[in-house]
Design a protein around this nucleic acid. Structure first.
Length: 292
DNA sequence: AGGAAGACCCGGACGC
DNA sequence: TGCGTCCGGGTCTTCC
């Protein structure tokens, strides 16, 4: 499940490989994944150049040269995959775009899921948006994009976001800390995995009431959050699948979680068994000894 | 205001 | 083996 670190890794790869490329072809395999009628979506994006890729929370924003944007959210299951087609054989891209999603999956073993939308780019690159089931790829104008982003809380990697800002946001809030951390209106980009990790490292139970968290703990929680996100980016994030066949970094953080998805296993700090319980409708993982 | 519950969607894991 | 059922993940909406 891609959260901020995974989207940041995608963003970096995309800026390295896809920036300045032109969209030459497009195909929508899953109509619900786009916000225009499929054919209209394709004719609209074809011919546009990708000027750059930005990230905000779990959103990736492709800036197009017509002043519009492609906004994508992976939600639960979305994956991106970049394929390089033999430049001597440009028809290959066309063949790909005319195949159906099932054929693609059979033909390209390393495709990380079922194709929802495919963009054929200049220089023989093909960008696959796979498994956009709850996720989507929307073509938006500046205003529509701003409306969407305005709702979003600050990104933990925003250089202007400090532990002091974080503590201020929590000021006067009621309720439990974990649901607050995961609400994108409060902070963006933090999902189940990294909220569990940050709370573990900060020694705070997921159910702790915000009103009962000291200032020092808030600072520690913010630092833990930023550190786990940065560390994850450095090691390749938590992904099952690589971004491209040459990519041997993506997924490198999978084995580093200390609490998330470790129910029943010993705490790496004290040896106590990691517990799992439902908090705010989501699975929380914690060490009952290290977290209070 | 916070929180629970339901909706969205589907692959994968489970039980029989 | 096959079939049904359930669950999890992120976010939005609705209702208490």
């Amino acid at each position: 499940m891609p959260e901020a670190p995974e989207m940041e890794i995608y963003k970096n790869y995309l800026n390295q490989w896809v920036k300045d490329k032109k969209i030459n072809q497009a195909n929508v395999y899953r109509a619900k994944s786009v916000n225009l009628e499929s054919k209209e979506f394709c004719t609209t994006v074809i011919g546009k150049q990708i000027k750059g890729i930005l990230r905000q929370g779990k959103y990736l924003i492709f800036q197009l040269d017509d002043g519009h944007f492609l906004l994508t959210h992976m939600m639960l299951d979305g994956r991106l995959f970049l394929m390089t087609i033999d430049a001597e054989n440009p028809q290959e891209t066309e063949v790909i775009l005319q195949s159906n999603a099932e054929d693609l999956k059979q033909r390209f073993q390393d495709l990380p899921g079922k194709a929802s939308v495919v963009l054929g780019l200049s220089d023989g690159l093909v960008l696959f948006f796979c498994n956009l089931t709850l996720g989507y790829l929307h073509y938006l104008g500046q205003d529509q994009l701003q409306t969407k982003l305005r709702e979003l809380g600050k990104d933990p990697l925003d250089p202007n976001f400090s532990a002091q800002n974080f503590a201020q946001l929590l000021e006067g809030k009621r309720g439990m800390i974990k649901p607050w951390l995961m609400n994108p209106k409060n902070i963006s980009g933090v999902g189940n995995a990294y909220s569990n990790e940050a709370l573990f490292s900060a020694g705070i139970l997921p159910t702790r009431l915000i009103s009962a968290i000291s200032l020092a703990e808030k600072v520690k929680l913010f630092d833990s959050l930023v550190n786990s996100i940065r560390e994850s980016i450095r090691l390749g994030g938590d992904m099952e699948e690589p971004f491209a066949s040459w990519d041997n970094l993506t997924g490198g953080y999978n084995a580093y979680f200390k609490a998330y998805d470790r129910a029943g296993k010993p705490c790496l700090v004290c040896g106590e068994t990691i517990q799992k319980s439902e908090v705010g409708g989501r699975n929380a993982f914690f060490c009952p000894h290290c977290q209070r």
